[in-house]
Computed example of a mutant assay.
Amino acid sequence: MTVQRGFTDGKVGEFGTGIDYFIGLMPEELVDKTDILAVGIDPVSARIFKMLYSQTTLHMNPLLLRPE
Rank of each mutant, 00 (worst) to 15 (best):
M1Y: 02
M1W: 04
M1I: 01
Q4F: 10
R5S: 04
G6V: 00
G6P: 02
G10C: 03
G10L: 04
K11N: 14
E14F: 06
T17Q: 09
T17G: 15
T17N: 10
G18V: 00
G18W: 11
D20N: 12
D20G: 07
F22K: 00
F22Q: 01
I23E: 07
I23D: 01
L25F: 11
L25K: 14
M26Q: 11
P27T: 06
E28I: 15
L30H: 05
V31E: 10
K33A: 01
K33D: 00
T34E: 01
T34Q: 00
D35T: 13
D35F: 02
I36H: 05
I36W: 04
L37H: 14
V39L: 13
G40S: 11
G40I: 03
G40D: 08
G40A: 10
G40E: 03
D42H: 14
P43Y: 08
P43D: 06
P43M: 06
V44W: 04
V44E: 08
V44K: 13
S45C: 13
S45K: 10
S45Y: 11
A46N: 05
R47W: 01
I48R: 11
K50C: 07
M51Q: 14
Y53Q: 10
T57H: 11
T57P: 06
T57E: 15
T57S: 11
T57D: 15
L58M: 11
H59A: 11
M60Y: 09
N61H: 11
P62R: 14
L63D: 06
L64W: 08
L65F: 09
L65Y: 10
E68N: 06
E68C: 02
